[in-house]
């Protein structure tokens, strides 16, 4: 049986809470937690000092001055224009929140804090085959991916390889296709890994982009729990992605408006 380590970026997250709840419902337990941020101890306090120095960097100062001037003369900046593209997940997570520190203490499992993936620490954890359930850490580089006995797993809100990239549940619905969640092994490319499990997302209740994303979000952590249970016990294997990949990017607000209307009409 493979070990399962949960990777998060903070102590309380909606997706890790959902995953743990679902995973336990299936009678499974995680074997350890890795939090990839400086949340406690010396580094946590040092962070604030570093941040002050960071904020005083010349290019940061120029950014603040620029934003201030733009505000005074009723203008904006190029950065802000570009950052307004894309849909935000504006839904409230209604399930029970799980504090990972408390959870680790209660279940007597190890919890590590780290600024990022540390190859030495990972090699130590991976004496046996270990699955890392990724809810933090972003794109993992080759050096980490290739650590012996380690497999990194994430779940994506789209069918692979046709819906890679961002806002894919929205794109699938807008294009008239059924949205999927896919659990896959990570490699150093974006959304390129082998597939473990995929499932259709039920969007019957979705009448807005926000509720659509909520349905997708819930489907993703449920699928992750199911896939990890089955994969660690070798009940299921992995398959390569077949077909021509298509990458999607953040949805422009004008297209989001059209999707919102479509979702309302469908309702």
């Amino acid at each position: 049986m493979k070990k399962v380590f949960l990777v998060a970026s903070s102590i309380i997250q909606d997706d890790t809470s959902g995953f743990i709840t679902e995973y336990e419902k299936k009678g499974c337990k995680i074997d350890g937690i890795l939090i990839l941020s400086r949340q406690s101890g010396f580094f946590y306090r040092l962070r604030y000092f570093i941040r002050i120095i960071y904020l005083l960097k010349p290019n940061k100062l120029i950014k603040y001055i620029t934003n201030f001037i733009a505000f005074i003369i009723n203008k904006t900046t190029y950065r802000k224009i570009v950052s307004q593209w894309g849909n935000k997940s504006l839904f409230k997570f209604s399930e029970k929140k799980v504090n990972l520190e408390t959870y680790a203490k209660q279940n007597k499992i190890p919890l590590y804090h780290s600024a990022g993936f540390n190859p030495i620490q990972l090699s130590d954890i991976c004496k046996h085959e270990t699955l890392f359930v990724m809810y933090g850490g972003g794109i993992v580089d080759d050096k980490i991916i290739n650590i012996r006995n380690a497999e990194f797993i994430n779940t994506h809100m789209g069918k692979m390889p046709t819906y890679r990239g961002m806002n894919v549940i929205e794109w699938a619905v807008l294009e008239g296709n059924e949205p999927y969640a896919t659990t896959m092994l990570m490699n150093s490319k974006i959304d390129d890994g082998e597939i473990i499990l995929e499932k259709k997302i039920n969007i019957a209740k979705a009448n807005s982009i926000s509720s659509l994303r909520e349905q997708g979000f819930i489907a993703c952590y449920k699928l992750m729990a199911e896939a990890i249970c089955k994969y660690k016990s070798r009940e299921i294997g992995k398959t390569k992605q077949i077909g021509r990949p298509r990458y999607y990017y953040r949805m422009h607000p004008k297209i989001s408006v059209i999707l919102e209307k479509k979702l309302l009409v469908n309702k």
């Binding site: 294009e175 004008k254 297209i255």
Partner: peptide, 16 residues
């Protein structure tokens, strides 16, 4: 639609 999406962003840039 990916092309329309990118086109609108490019238009936004010139508009701004």
């Amino acid at each position: 639609l990916r092309f329309l999406n990118a086109a609108l962003k490019l238009i936004d840039i010139v508009t701004s």
